[in-house]
Design a protein around this nucleic acid. Structure first.
Lengths: 349, 349
DNA sequence: CTCGCCTTTGACAACGTTGTCCAGGCTCTA
DNA sequence: TAGAGCCTGGACAACGTTGTCAAAGGCGAG
């Protein structure tokens, strides 16, 4: 069933207040409507004296141009939308800020929304942004089918997917090297003598989680280590379940001697659990964490640069808008292994 | 000099693509314009058969309602603006998310912008949001004169200031108890035997910084301890200068035995500096920090609830919009002292 | 069979701005 | 002094939607 733009409104009905319009300004200044428009937009062809009169009327009335009407005429909104998972997550804050900075450099505002990892909510947000006629969209997808965006792409809405690829649609994508980063992180543990290595990550339906899992498997296979099912815990991110998963891995008669964690939230909980145990378990986490170097031991991580992701995506967005209509591309940014101690602990068996 | 709404546009000129309008849908479905409008808005009075035809046309053309035109007619945008200092700061992420959640519950989208602590940029952002006719504004002020908002308030734009009070204008404000929190934090250090206590904070022109400094002074005075100028470092937040300020306090012949830090960024740097010294210096920081309990010693903080600030402000915003036009109020949320070790170290002299 | 009422549908104006185009007044030149 | 050309200012339509109102058609009651 194709998409419908139908929506119900909570905010409908009467307007809030009555703001002065250009007509009011024109009346007060004793000039024509278009003259006010010219003054407001700094267009030439207005006598200094006339301009002064208009300016006075503007200030006296507290006039502000109504951009909705302007957009209606001009067709551009000078705003871009950003849909991400959760603005409160320390990974997305810097990403969002980076997009905002690029947008600002191009004179555009940023509207952002959190999908809470819910595909329906993602779609709802994206369509709301399209209804507002944002010039461009940066999307960190929650869902895996974005065919609903086909009309927008056809209509020329610039679109870039970030952190995870678009589903069933051909579009620009900016990713981290999740596979390579995870593989390197796990290989690092193997190089320090570990053979029984646990993996705790998110649901494999999330692209990043799947790639990191694949990296884990690849590193293990490269080293000729068969992976046991009990070493892997997938689809687990809330603190309570991460805690339980970690405890179970440690309680095994042949327990893991190292753990690779699939994202910052998991890492934080695992650190807490490990801190309660006497046995020293090595740890490498995906995503960097503030103060990681002040922990005992310091936390070794595979770091990705959230701001670079956002900046790269936004720059590509505006290149699309500038008409450099290159064909959709897949850009992959490198990750960086930062060793601080926790990943260099020897196996304790 | 009063305000002018003049702006220059980077994005102007031709529209991007041609999107189908209701007229196109009507033509294709062989019905009138208004009937399409009715279907799109779920209004009653349309035969199922007619509705089906319209729906087919909508799907075939990929029509999306243009909210700019809609806003122009209806007068409400169902969007609120949030201006804060820096979205990448871990304090503002949760705050922004909280505002978004409340907005979402009221069917509104959130537009946010970072002022980078620059009053001109704050004003520019706020006015851009007003031009877009946001229904409401949540502002974390960078400047101290908000008279430029008078026309908006008069026009009925709901406005709430957060974290810092509005300047020279009468408006709703939601604050933390910065004074009380800082006083309690410093009193906590005094209760643990400290008399020479340092204070490192932001410029006193920032309200929160001034209040926290006032709290520090009050606690010292309550304990009858005269404060030395060399114990206070104001207007210092970048890591390099915080580092130097801390080193200087410690190098004194009669060095401070404890430090109170005025915000999370300062705290993080001071922790790093203290970790490099053998002498044990007590530390209490304003703002909580993730993993604070895993440091050695655990970090004692005066915690403020950023999400609660955002939620409270947004709820008040929508109560304004719902017409519960109470007079402007000043709401102060409590802070919470969380003891984890660093604030309970005895003086080492 | 006619009248009146209800349901479904569409024509039209209005929202506030900008682009187009023309009018009026001025200056400059022949 | 007349004509050409320029500069300033304004009238008007258009952008895409929604609210108002009226027309057309169907149905039941008298």
């Amino acid at each position: 069933m194709p998409e419908t733009p139908r929506r119900t409104d909570r905010l409908s009905g009467t307007r809030y207040g009555n703001r002065p319009t250009m007509k009011d300004v024109a009346a007060r200044a004793g000039v024509g409507l278009k003259t006010v428009s010219r003054v407001v937009n700094g267009e030439p062809g207005v006598t200094p004296e006339t301009e002064r009169r208009v300016q006075e009327a503007i200030d006296a009335l507290g006039f502000r141009r109504n951009d909705s009407a302007r957009v209606l005429r001009k067709g551009r909104t000078a705003s871009v939308g950003l849909v991400l998972e959760d603005l409160a997550d320390p990974f997305y804050g810097p990403l969002s800020r980076a997009v905002e900075e690029v947008a600002r450099a191009h004179g555009a505002l940023l509207i952002n929304g959190s999908s809470a990892e819910d595909p329906d909510r993602e779609r709802e947000l994206v369509l709301a942004l399209c209804a507002r006629r944002v010039d461009g969209l940066v999307v960190i997808p929650a869902g895996d089918d974005h065919r609903y965006l086909e009309p927008e792409l056809k209509a020329g809405v610039a679109t870039v997917f970030v952190d995870r690829p678009a589903g069933r649609i051909d579009a620009d994508v900016v990713l981290c090297d999740n596979f390579g980063g995870a593989r390197d992180g796990v290989a690092h543990l193997i190089a320090h003598g570990h053979r029984r290595i646990g993996f705790i990550g998110d649901m494999p339906r999330i692209h990043t989680a799947a790639e990191r899992l694949r990296g884990y498997r690849a590193a293990m296979e490269d080293a000729g280590i068969p992976v046991k099912d009990s070493w892997m815990s997938l689809g687990v991110t809330d603190p309570e379940r991460v805690r339980r998963a970690t405890e179970e891995m440690l309680a095994d008669p042949h327990p893991v001697t190292a753990v690779f964690t699939g994202n910052n939230r998991v890492t934080v909980t695992v650190i807490r659990v490990l801190a309660e145990h006497s046995r020293r378990v090595a740890l490498v986490g995906f995503d960097d964490i503030e103060l990681a170097e002040l922990l005992r031991p310091g936390l070794t991580v595979v770091a990705q640069d959230a701001a670079a992701l956002g900046r790269t995506a936004a720059e590509r967005l505006f290149r699309q808008l500038d008409g450099a209509l290159v064909t959709p591309e897949r850009i992959e940014l490198p990750t960086r292994l930062i060793t601080r101690g926790s990943g260099e602990l020897p196996p304790a068996d």
